[in-house]
Each structure stands twice: as C-alpha cells, then as structure tokens.
Design a protein around this nucleic acid. Structure first.
Lengths: 198, 198
DNA sequence: CGGTTCCTTGAGGATGATCAACGAGGGTGG
DNA sequence: CCACCCTCGTTGATCATCCTCAAGGAACCG
C-alpha cells in the first residue's frame, strides 16, 4: 500500500466504486485527484486512430496511479479504465500535495515509486528495437516477473490474455499466438489447456 | 540546472572530464554516483545482440541523469556515453541522499523531474503501436518539441542525424530517410541542404 | 444450452529490413 | 589549395515477415 488508507480518509479522501469498463479519466483530461486502489484492477492505455490499443500498465490493490501529472502541470497522458469492479480512494490534488509536505517520508516513498516506474518503462521501451515478436514477448515476460519480484526460473501461470500481451508489445493477437507456440516448442514457456506458464 | 553547482561542490562533488565516446557507465553497473552535467552532452542507450541501438535520451548542460537507480536498489538499466567532450559533477550516492534529506525542497524538485521523465516516456512508448514509420517519426518530433518547450507550429532546425532518429524510433536509417522525404512532400517538415526543419 | 469471449489456423498482401553501392559535405594535413 | 578520409545522406532491388481478413473451434458462465 502506498499511503495508509486511514490517513487518506483523515485528509478527506473519498472512496468511489467503479464498474467494469468504467473510464476513470481520458488522455488529455486535467489531473485533479490522487488515485489509490482499495480493491480491483485498473488499466492505463492509449488508443491510436485505428482503435489499436497500447497498455501502459495494470494496477491493483494498494497501488496508486496517475501521479506524475499531479507534480507537473500536465494533463493525463493515457486513459484509465476499471478492468473489474473496482473501489478507489480519491484525494484532491491540493490536499494530496499538502499531505506530502506534512509527511516528508511520503516524498521519499514517491521518489522510490516513480523511480521504479521509470526503471520499468526503460526496460519495456527497449523492446522497440526488436521487431522480432519472440524477443519482444520474452522481454515482456521477463519484465513482468521482475516487476512482481518473481524468480525468473520459477514457472508461474501468466494471468493475462493473448490480446493483452499483444496490447503490451504492439503486436497483433495472431502474431502473439504464433510466437508463443514457437516459444513453447523452444521450451521457453509451457502451455496447458490454453493457459500460459512462464 | 537541477542542483546548484556550489552546493554540490560544498557537499563533496568532484568534476570530471570525459572525452567524446567515453562510457560513463554500462547497463548492469551498480549506481554509485549522482551525475550532473556542467557542459557537454550525454546519451543513454541500449544495445541488442545484433548491435542495433536504442536511445533512451540525450542530456545536456545543467541536466542530471541516471537518478532512479539511486533511489531504488537497482543497477543501471542503460549505457551512458559522452557524445562530445563533457564535464560532469559526480557526487557519491550516500552524500547525494543525505543532501536530499537536508533540503526537502530538493525532493520536490526530483519528484517533478522524475514525473516529467515518466510523462515523456509514456508519450514515446505510445509509438510502439504505430509500425508505420511516418507516424512514429511524427510522434517523436512532437515529443521532442514538447520536451524542449517549443511551439508545435514554429519551425526549428532539428539538431540530430537520421541515424539518431532511427535509434530513437526503432527504425532503420534508410526507412527514416524515405519517410522524411515523404513527410517533406506532405509539408509536415522542410529539408534544406539535407538539414531537417520541424 | 445459448451467448460471449478468447483462441486458432490459413492464405495473401503490404511494407520495413537488408544488402550493396554511391554521393555529398566537412575537416585535416601535406 | 588540393587530396584524402570519414561521417552522413541517398537510392534501388530483393527478401522476410508481420499484418490483415476470414472463418471456425474451445472454454467459460449465466
């Protein structure tokens, strides 16, 4: 958990429930709130003109998201959508910034959080040079495991769909499917009942 | 300038001169210093197996770089190379973190700096979905202008080579050349004596 | 069961990468 | 001033491969 929930309530945060597929904010919207998830899942993503999507990230219980625009005067760079029924604590921008001034240790916490975010984005943007689908997907899986502090050796069930992999790697579903089949043959991953183990 | 140079010297920073093409650190190295450029230019970049490069960013006078690994315990995610003769202030990690504790306003400064960095990375990683070279390059030029706080309408001389554009967009030089020629015809940019005006 | 979402396969076409060769410009030293 | 070199820019031809479109199958859920 980023900020203690009781503290957030004490400073005036309001809990709000979103249904699956509700939009929390659109790309270009002004940033007025700090968001922290109590339960559920949120996806940040872009759309291009043809409706193709690119996922910036998924956030779940205890995570905050969309903070950078609160610190600089920019609008949101991506859309945010509830992936499941989701309950979120919202604290207004001003109150959030005041809270940070009150507790300097929170600033350090956010320095770490943003640093991690940058580190992960650097790792994932590397894949731009590999047009080769298998490298891209392999790189994506490695980042996924690192971000979730999992051992690279240990096999785990990968919880997202092929379409979502496509939306993270900039590939097409069919390409992802063909690539992971190759990767299964090459023993890079396992597929059991259509489920992916990495 | 991120941190006042006199302050850095007072806290024990050392100025060091690097020649063109000197490596400051490699991907995977432990992060032991805060780096701030006095004069010159530094490039952060990745290499893949075939030697193809991807640029994460260029940094110039007054800029700091490679901070995120100082806040979290990670190694450098990219290589850093001096693009020209460059003079850099180096402050050891511990002294840097102590300096930040001493001056809380610096923490806020870095929160903003990191937020900007994330914002820009989000904007540039969008282009992964556009396999189309012209869209990628257009997106890259727009980001370049925004990051340098330039009006999108105003034409400026773009200071990098076609190879560097390729290394930022994940394309090949020849593809970049053909794309910008098309873009010139489409009046998206001007080319004068081989120089690009955007 | 019926519907929805996700997964899978094949065929064909578009296009960026690759390879090879050359041109243009700028700087350096004789 | 000229010759040389080195980097950068340019062009064409060919190839590999990812995208696209279309169709159908599998799993899951009420």
């Amino acid at each position: 958990m980023v900020i203690d929930e009781d503290t957030l309530y004490a400073w005036g945060a309001i809990a709000k429930k979103y249904q699956k597929n509700d939009i929390l904010f659109y790309e270009g919207d002004a940033a007025n709130y700090y968001y922290q998830i109590i339960s559920g899942e949120v996806r940040m993503y872009h759309c291009n003109e043809d409706g193709k999507e690119f996922n910036q990230g998924f956030f779940t219980d205890g995570c905050s998201f969309g903070e950078p625009p609160l610190f600089i005067d920019e609008n949101y760079p991506s859309n945010a959508m509830a992936q499941t029924e989701t309950i979120i604590l919202k604290l207004s921008k001003n109150k959030f910034l005041n809270l940070l001034e009150e507790y300097p240790s929170l600033k350090t916490k956010f320095l770490k959080l943003l640093s991690n975010r940058i580190f992960n984005k650097a790792a994932s943007s590397k894949q731009i040079i590999n047009q080769n689908p298998e490298s891209r997907i392999k790189n994506y899986f490695e980042n996924y495991k690192r971000q979730h502090q999992l051992d690279q050796k240990e096999k785990i069930l990968f919880p997202y769909t092929r379409q979502q992999i496509a939306d993270f790697t900039g590939l097409r579903v069919e390409t992802v499917i063909r690539a992971i089949k190759k990767m299964e043959k090459a023993k890079i991953l396992d597929i059991l009942h259509h489920k992916i183990y990495i």
